[in-house]
């Protein structure tokens, strides 16, 4: 009757890693089974590219080519929405009873959240690759390969921060539908009050500092600078002179705030 092997007991580091990978494996396994989710995430971003390049692009004045200016912003916007995907996945798992199943098993307590964050970063990496290829097709170019890799890494690091925001959000909303509403009303303004689609100078003056420090903007500015994609001349604010640094600080803030909040919320599910 002792079917259990002598593998690491729950609570040990070994089991935390193995169980986290197993949960992540499960999350990734689901993606091709519901291809619509990934397809529409990509289509949504492509639609933004088409809309802004062909419909509004002519009316927006940027230094250089508008497509080059826009693409880094589209990548950043896509990654901000990573929080939404994660939140919906998390809420869905709770409501379908999967999280209860996990909680009744002798597995590592942290694995449900670490597995979720790990799989969702990989998922977003996949989405980004498809979008970048699309970008190349419509004429987006970067200066060199190392800068492309550095920018990609910064995007994934940003995704990791957003995924923790998503975990916390997903644990706090009652249903997937409410989650979608929250995402729509919170994330859309965040990505629009930014330098993603227009140069900051074209925004109302009082809005400019907010938009400038918006993490979406700092990420976009950092990418434009790295890739030589029509970065506007820097202002004298730190968010504009050191956008990559500010972005990294933003991500650390997200992880430090929403990581513990999410973990605490997850633990209190037994109340």
């Amino acid at each position: 009757m002792t079917a259990r092997t002598t593998s690491a007991p729950s609570g040990s580091v070994g089991s935390a890693v193995t169980d986290g990978i197993l949960v992540g494996w499960r999350n990734l396994k689901r993606i091709p089974r519901i291809p619509e989710l990934a397809i529409f995430a990509i289509l949504q971003s492509i639609m933004f590219v088409l809309l802004f390049v062909f419909v509004f692009g002519g009316a927006i004045n940027v230094p250089g080519d508008y497509t080059s200016f826009l693409m880094p912003g589209i990548f950043a916007q896509t990654i901000v929405f990573a929080a939404g995907t994660t939140a919906i996945g998390m809420t869905d798992d709770i409501n379908k009873g999967i999280v209860d199943r996990f909680r009744s098993l002798p597995m590592s307590r942290s694995a449900v959240l670490t597995g979720r964050t790990f799989s969702d970063v990989i998922y977003n990496a996949g989405i980004l690759v498809v979008l970048m290829l699309t970008g190349f097709v419509v004429g987006w170019r970067v200066d060199d390969i190392p800068s492309l890799i550095a920018g990609f890494a910064l995007l994934l690091f940003f995704a990791y921060g957003m995924v923790w925001l998503g975990v916390w959000l997903g644990l706090n909303v009652p249903t997937v539908e409410v989650g979608q509403q929250v995402i729509f009303t919170v994330l859309f303004p965040i990505t629009f009050i930014s330098n993603v689609f227009v140069p900051l100078e074209s925004l109302p003056e009082w809005l400019q500092p907010i938009a400038e420090w918006n993490p979406t903007s700092t990420l976009t500015a950092a990418l434009r600078e790295m890739w030589g994609n029509g970065a506007p001349p820097p202002t004298n604010s730190l968010a504009s002179t050191e956008p990559a640094l500010v972005t990294i600080v933003w991500v650390l803030v997200f992880i430090v705030v929403f990581g513990p909040l999410g973990v605490r919320r997850y633990r209190s599910m037994s109340r």
Binding site: A3, K96, I98, P106, M107
Partner: peptide
């Protein structure tokens, strides 16, 4: 312990054998 709750808690997007394998692994089976 083993628990089967009031509403089936299996993953809709995994196959039957994938579900069982996953829960077995998380039960710390090899």
């Amino acid at each position: 312990i083993g628990l089967s709750g009031q509403y089936a808690a299996v993953d809709e997007n995994l196959t039957g054998s994938e579900n069982l394998w996953l829960f077995g692994r998380l039960y710390q089976l090899s």
